[in-house]
Amino acid sequence: MKQKTMLKSRRAFLKTGIFITGAVAIGTGLNYAIRPDTQSIASILTHYLDYPDLAIQLGSSLIENEPGLAQLTIEQMTELALQDVGLQKDQLTYYSLLTNIDNYRKAIHKDFDVENIVLVDGWVISRTEGHLCALLYLYENANGRPA
């Protein structure tokens, strides 16, 4: 199976799992009780990206070329990505994460509006998008799937 297809299948599986977990949490009223760990947060945030291969490549290049990102752990990168939409890790629930995409949309729109952009590998993307790509790269590495 091609790597791209494998990535797609795995991500589809993960997405379904996260959705079910979230739905259960919300349905049982535990949404404010269950706090996701870093891996889960990173997994959910990076599912906002639709094309993992290129996103991983961009994330890798960003980490390589931006001094501020080069030394960050996946935990720190996750926190940075959350800060982009004004969230803090210790305040998160699955519910808030799963309903968070609109905040990222607004943050990205604002990034472009104020020209908070990064140029990476010939692409022009918002700073927030760059952070998500970098997080995806670290997440894939942390899970033994180097890009």
Binding site: L49, D50, L54, I101, R105, I108, G122
Partner: peptide
């Protein structure tokens, strides 16, 4: 380029992305 830039379709709120 063959690179597909539609990484951000969900974030651009494209229905059915």
């Amino acid at each position: 380029t063959d690179a597909d830039g539609r990484i951000f379709s969900q974030l651009d709120a494209v229905p059915g992305a």
